[in-house]
């Protein structure tokens, strides 16, 4: 704010400043262009005629407008099942995340809680030491969670990092006096959490929802290790099959002609699949931009 005022009072920038501003704008313009170009290319390719894409005619704008790729996606059962599964894992998983994270973070933010620091140490330790892939896998097996929907939700129910962010927020933003006044009126801790803390913490809840939801939507590691049934797979696993596994198979084919033939049709799907799978993230993005930055900043001030 103040900075803008300072500059307005000046009539004209000196020459060296003007050159400097131009340099800065060029740097930023280049960075933006480099970021944007692959994205534009993907979008254009997804709306283009598949054979124009294969022939390398698409450079910036769509060539030979076609919705063939999108048609093929929406008539593909595996993609649809994956999409629905991902929506389920993301909503159910995030709901569990939020409840569990708040249940851990709020009591731990209360200083009078005896033993709270021990629990904090136990949580923090999980951030710096992990038993590893194999012990975790064997545990899932012993708990009979392999190849069930639970395995997509329970193991990742709390992220210690997010829990600590929430705890920092609670201890900094819920005034002690409020608690004392409520206690004076005979308000219980549960009631206080539900009717006072939660409504006052919308900002941090939004941050948590977005942190958790992006991870659920985008990750494939747990599904990759623990699931084996087609009907349970989230979208990312289906994407992997179509975008990556199929790709390597095609580039292994020595006969360029037939490879091109096979690819022609598969290719039309790939770009539209990238778009469709990313759209849900882009929908929450406008909100995310506001809250995520806030979250990153809360995260950087450790409690």
């Amino acid at each position: 704010m103040t900075k803008a005022v300072i500059h307005k009072t000046k009539v004209k920038d000196p020459l060296d400043d003007r050159i400097f501003y131009i340099v800065v704008y060029v740097i930023l313009g280049l960075l933006t262009l480099i970021t944007l170009y692959p994205l534009i290319y993907i979008v254009s390719a997804s709306f283009s005629d598949p054979f124009s894409v294969l022939a390398g005619k698409v450079v910036f704008f769509p060539v030979g407008f076609s919705l063939e790729g999108y048609n093929r996606i929406f008539s593909n059962d595996r993609v649809l099942t994956g999409f629905i599964n991902s929506i389920f894992y993301t909503t159910a998983g995030t709901a569990v995340n939020i409840v569990m994270t708040v249940l851990a973070a709020y009591p731990l933010s209360r200083k009078e809680l005896k033993g709270g620091s021990v629990v904090m140490v136990l949580f923090t330790f999980t951030m710096i030491f992990n038993a590893g892939m194999i012990p975790n896998y064997v545990l899932m097996k012993d708990l009979h969670l392999l190849d069930t929907r639970w395995v997509m939700i329970l193991p990742a129910a709390i992220s210690a990092y997010n829990m600590i962010i929430a705890r920092t927020f609670f201890s900094a933003n819920i005034p002690r006096e409020l608690l004392e006044a409520a206690q004076m009126d005979g308000c219980s801790d549960f009631k206080f959490l539900l009717s006072i803390v939660i409504p006052l913490s919308k900002a941090i809840l939004a941050v948590l929802v977005m942190f958790y939801a992006t991870v659920h939507w985008n990750s494939y590691f747990n599904a990759f290790l623990y699931l084996s049934s087609d009907e349970l797979y989230p979208l990312q696993i289906i994407l992997r099959d179509i975008l990556i596994t199929a790709q390597t198979a095609a580039s292994d084919t020595s006969d360029a002609e037939s490879a091109l033939e096979i690819q022609g049709l598969a290719e039309s799907m790939k770009y539209s699949l990238m778009i469709v799978s990313t759209i849900p993230m882009m929908c929450i993005y406008p909100f995310a931009q506001k809250y995520f930055t806030q979250g990153v900043m809360i995260g950087s001030i450790k409690g």
Binding site: L28, L31, T32, T35, L36, P38, L39, Y41, I42, A45, V53, L54, G56, T214, W217, N218, S219, Y220, Q236, L239, R240, L243, I244, Q247, S251, A256, A259, L260, Q263, E267, K270, Y271, L273, M274, S277, T278, M281, M282, Y285, A288, Q289, F292
Partner: peptide, 30 residues
């Protein structure tokens, strides 16, 4: 500039790798 440069962070690793494989394909990629 901020809006554009934050976008890639939200793209899943599978899509990123898919993009790399498509764009750097020596026959059909960009």
């Amino acid at each position: 500039v901020q809006m554009v440069t934050y976008i890639p962070h939200f793209i899943s690793v599978i899509v990123i790798v898919g993009m790399i494989l498509q764009m750097f394909n020596s026959r059909i990629g960009l």
